[in-house]
Amino acid sequence: MYYYIYDSFLTDKKYERVIASVETRLTDLGISGKIGRLTPFTNAKGLIRDETRRGVQTIVVVGNDETIAKVVEGIGDTKLTLGIIPIGTPVSIAHSLGIPEGAEACDVLSKRLTQKIDLGMVNGRYFLSQVCFAGDNVSLESDGKFRLTMLAEECEVTISNLRSVVADDGAGHTAGDPMDGWLDALITPRTVGLKNVFQRRADKVPSVIPIRRMSVTAAEPFAVIADGREFMNDTLSIEVVPEKLKIITGRERMFA
């Protein structure tokens, strides 16, 4: 039994055609189901809780990365399976999971290749893809074992769970395997203007450090983006929750 959660932006006229084709394809494949819509007055957690009581076993997110973030936060502590139909932008999470956009995603959904993947947790909230923040004036400590100090004036820190390409150094370095029980901390020096032109290529290569738990502290609150959702805090407690989410993936996924 499938339950589809549509994001509020899908009411826009420009998505009418793609929604219609998705719904037709779902009916053809015999996997159509009840539809719930996110609005400013309904959250994903509430919708999921109500439908779980009615026996729903698969929740399908229809929307972009931010929609997935909202649903993952609500689905984290249940044993439900998550499916995705990517529509809108950005859809990088679906891309990492090997799920094509629009109606083609329905075929991936019907094949139902499921995998148990890790989730990340930042300050008690689940995230699927990554957490980003500026690395200036913050202190990073991993599991109380080692401390990371940034020598570059400005840098960006990304704690990644899903695989993504991290360096344009030609070597095609990737980071973030959601099935290895680790998160990857990527520290990328950020340079602008002339400094960027004259900086050596080696200096632009990001550090990639596998972590299980990390604490981030700063003297003042700083901006954090978790799966596309922004919040402010002066302390972050980040950890991996292994094999937490059962998810439907495509064959073109960026991990095993």
């Binding site: 990371l148 940034m150 020598l151 370095h173 520290i187 080696a202 200096d203 290569v205 550090s207 450090i209």
Partner: peptide
């Protein structure tokens, strides 16, 4: 492929 890269812009202190 390396799993850990400590780039020139980073210093690690500890175990």
């Amino acid at each position: 492929e390396p799993e850990t890269i400590i780039a020139p812009s980073v210093k690690v202190e500890g175990d």
